[in-house]
């Protein structure tokens, strides 16, 4: 037994740091919180304003266009089923959170991924951070999010962004680094500037890989949004959470199946985007 070695005060240190950050930056995070929550509310309200049948037709049509007839039909049937289960509103709420989180994740992840691909030093800093972000159990992010952004959807989306951005960063970097050397050389030989090379060759060539990253980001975002129900994010996760607390297995499974259906629809549609490009078929 070695009781004499004192415990390293890791938890205390983190708490102190977070307190300090909360104290000094809460004005910023509060403002951000208001802005994000306004956007989320507006989108939810807008989507609920559209009659469900119309929205179902639109989404199914998009699915058909992007991913073919089978996905289109599956989308229509799946969403009709959700509507029938009286889960339309939580579905819309969950979808909105996933949408917002994914947009933010891509807005952060794409440039970071590009920077990491083009610059060794950036890559050396970013990659270990990503490992850390991804291996940390997801709901740990929820705890510090609350003091910054309060209970609710905003905290949920912030934690979701942190949890779901890494695949976009990773696969963007990978996609760019994978561009064959002789194509880079051809671009150079014709006098392309760095910017021209990036936008005319590297990014277009990386599209399928980047899309795979975004698809993963969406899937992670969905799983996190569900977990975030614990801090009052509402949506389908909220239904599950309620069912747990009231010990209602039937209701719990209903919501669980709804999440699976939503996940499959999002996955099938986004998986196809970029896959049909000439770059993908050339490999």
């Amino acid at each position: 037994m070695i009781p004499s070695v004192p415990k390293f005060p890791l938890a205390h240190g983190i708490d102190v740091a977070l307190d300090w950050l909360t104290h000094n930056f809460s004005w910023l995070t509060q403002a951000l919180s208001h802005a994000i929550s306004a956007v989320i509310d507006a989108i939810v309200a807008g989507l609920l304003f559209v009659p469900p049948w119309l929205l179902i037709i639109i989404v199914a049509a998009v699915g058909w266009r992007v991913a073919g007839r089978r996905v289109g039909i599956f989308t229509a049937l799946g969403l009709l089923f959700l509507w029938n289960l009286r889960l339309w509103q939580p579905t819309v709420e969950t979808f909105t959170l996933v949408l917002i989180s994914t947009l933010i994740a891509v807005a952060i992840g794409l440039p970071l991924g590009i920077a990491a691909a083009l610059n060794k030093r950036t890559s050396r800093i970013v990659m270990p951070v990503l490992d850390f972000m991804q291996t940390m159990p997801a709901f740990v992010y929820l705890i510090p999010a609350i003091p910054f952004f309060g209970l609710g959807a905003v905290s949920a989306s912030v934690a979701t962004v942190i949890f779901s951005t890494p695949p976009t960063i990773r696969l963007t970097a990978l996609g760019i680094r994978q561009v064959p050397g002789d194509l880079i050389e051809a671009a150079d030989a014709f006098g392309s500037s760095r910017k021209q090379k990036l936008f005319k060759v590297q990014l277009p060539m990386a599209v399928p890989t980047i899309m795979a990253g975004i698809n993963q980001t969406i899937m992670l975002a969905l799983s996190m949004v569900v977990i975030a129900a614990m801090i009052g994010a509402g949506g389908l996760g909220g239904e599950v959470w309620e069912a747990i607390q009231r010990l209602e297995p039937g209701k719990g499974f209903e919501s669980g199946i709804a999440i699976v259906i939503l996940a499959m629809i999002l996955d099938r549609i986004t998986q196809r985007i970029g896959r049909d490009s000439k770059v993908a078929s050339a490999h």
Binding site: P180, D182, L183, E185, A186, A189, F190, G191, V201, P204, M205, V207, S277, K278, V279, A282
Partner: peptide, 15 residues
């Protein structure tokens, strides 16, 4: 403008 190159494995842009 002045020098162009042709590559052994073509190096065409597939997209």
């Amino acid at each position: 403008t002045k020098i162009s190159m042709v590559f052994q494995h073509f190096a065409l842009f597939p997209h």
